[in-house]
Design a protein around this nucleic acid. Sequence first.
DNA 1: GCTAGTTATAGTCATTTTGACTAGAACTGA
DNA 2: TCAGTTCTAGTCAAAATGACTATAACTAGC
Lengths: 236, 236
Amino acid sequence: MYMGSANVSERAVAAPSLAISTVIFALRPSESSGRPTLWIPLVRRIREPFKGLWALPGGPLTHSESLQDAASRNLRETTGLAPSYLEQLYAFGGLHRSPSQRVVSIVYWALVQPTEAALADESENVKWFRADRLGDLAFDHNAIVDYALWRLRNKLAYGSVAYHFLGEYFTLAQVREVYEAVLDTRLDPANFRRQLKSTPEIEETGEYLQGGKHRPPRLYRYTGRPGLDPDNRSKP
Amino acid sequence: MYMGSANVSERAVAAPSLAISTVIFALRPSESSGRPTLWIPLVRRIREPFKGLWALPGGPLTHSESLQDAASRNLRETTGLAPSYLEQLYAFGGLHRSPSQRVVSIVYWALVQPTEAALADESENVKWFRADRLGDLAFDHNAIVDYALWRLRNKLAYGSVAYHFLGEYFTLAQVREVYEAVLDTRLDPANFRRQLKSTPEIEETGEYLQGGKHRPPRLYRYTGRPGLDPDNRSKP
DNA sequence: GCTAGTTATAGTCATTTTGACTAGAACTGA
DNA sequence: TCAGTTCTAGTCAAAATGACTATAACTAGC
């Protein structure tokens, strides 16, 4: 492609390369307490730079797909996961994110349900980590995860995102566990329940979850609409 | 650069071109009521596609500047403005945003103070429009402005952004006028003032604004820190 | 210098929301 | 049948909110 012969002024206006990455969140039971906690799948870098370090799943943007499609495809290819929620996080374009070349990364964040997460490919080069124990990641990926975590907590408090961690039917206690895991606090069951019951998007069903060793909780269903960011706006 | 001879498979993986645009908001007195309203500067397209239509100020990303720097420079070059607030809005990357080629636009939104806005270059090809009366813009820029407006209203309700429309010193009534203009509602002066006075980031000064034909209002100062998105996080 | 007009500012009061807590209901397992 | 557990409804005080009243402090016009 003769890029090697491009002169300085041509290189100065050449567009930086464009990549897509995704921060994927799922809830899995903690080994210690058994209570749900936040986990993130990472892939191991098999080439320089940062060869051997763990990084967010990602790849180039191809010419024939939208940004969200690219994120979705990449997520499926690298981890085998199908997200229940996918939203753009931020475009990272600092000058020195990669030592070798200028890269602009458009980063998405995704939520997957525990059933999905359990099926996920896990191998030598794909592994799940607790979100609060990631170690040093490649590139600026620690900062990206921090920001994604901040956004997740924010959106959660806002209201409409917790249900994407869960299946179609759920108990109010399960919703509370999502909040407790993500925000890392304990919430009063009675007050939390009162709040949820006052939101119209949560619909009571006639069914109950059987099998626990206590009073069977009622199952609910979420009826709210997805979201309001541009990717999800004008879909049928 | 031999791009002309690139074959189909090479073109399929070639990265889309990358551009930066900015939605700029300022408050200006409405001609009709005299009360402040939201205005946006647009530039006229001088080439195809959409030649002659109005569009958001924007341009290519050069190799040696960060995304935010590019937005800042571009905003200065096209409109002569220096923003008091600048934040990334969204990366738009739909397949058919431009009829001629695939373009990914990383869009910023900015607030400028009225003193700045008054100095702004206005010419045949740069003009201010009321945010609610833009007409048909080039590309998907109407949708982008809609989303920027939604974000502005959201951030305003959140709390820390109204002051960037104002100078260093301001009266509580001026803050209320910002809210009224952006949210397009009337707010009760007494209740609004009670809320502001309960937020610690707003500091009472000993000075008063003279010159009105009524009781002189006290001047306040905003002492809150900028924001928490990645661009603004680790700055000194 | 008095008065009307205007906005600034403090305060009241009923309603709603929130946080801490109590207690009974409904299940399981021993 | 009882102990253990969670589910669920409810109480009560504190805090926040919305509608409103009243006074303070200035200017403009007479």
